[in-house]
């Protein structure tokens, strides 16, 4: 396999993403963890771009960084007091969890590397955005409507629960 410019880009972005992800789970400061999280989200967005899933890349930024990460940062700020303590960030089972995670990755890697995927080498010619849009209102119209209801429910519920008394 020839290593090209794209491979390098991929490796750089992947490394960035993983470092950020590690930062999320290892950082001792919750706020820093959330910043790492934003980094990881951004890295994943770029990865989507490398797979020509542009819409998803943008949606990733919009939803994950613009909404979810903001919400997380926001809640961290609202509950500011909890970060002042110097208590450890991890619980008693962190050791086991680490072992589990490493083992899991090992197994997954081992399995994944053995597989010869039936990859279809094909350039994307169609207008993916249009395809996505059409799919959402034809084949996927039922889930689309469902998630509309779900989002309204979640919205109302979240407001109801988080409202000050």
């Amino acid at each position: 396999m020839e290593i090209t410019f794209f491979h390098v880009i991929f490796l750089v972005v992947a490394a960035f993403t993983l470092v950020c992800a590690l930062g999320v789970v290892l950082s001792r400061n919750l706020f820093h963890a959330s910043i790492w999280l934003i980094g990881a989200f951004a890295g994943v967005a770029i990865l989507y771009w490398t797979m020509e899933a542009e819409y998803l890349a943008i949606a990733q930024i919009m939803v994950y960084i613009g909404a979810i990460a903001t919400l997380i940062v926001f809640s961290i700020m609202l509950s500011r007091g909890m970060m002042l303590g110097r208590a450890p960030m991890n619980n008693f089972q962190s050791g086991i969890s680490a072992v589990v995670a490493v083992l899991l990755f090992g197994i997954l890697a081992l399995v994944l590397l053995q597989i010869n995927w039936p990859v279809v080498q094909q350039a994307i010619t169609s207008d993916q955005i249009a395809q996505l849009g059409e799919a959402l209102v034809s084949t996927y119209v039922v889930p689309f409507q469902t998630i509309a209801v779900l989002l309204s429910v979640a919205l109302i519920g979240a407001i109801m629960i988080a409202r000050e008394h």
């Binding site: 819409y55 949606a59 990460a69």
Partner: peptide
Amino acid sequence: LYFVAMSGIASI
């Protein structure tokens, strides 16, 4: 969409 997404970063 990109434009809208980017304005989200400003708030962060």
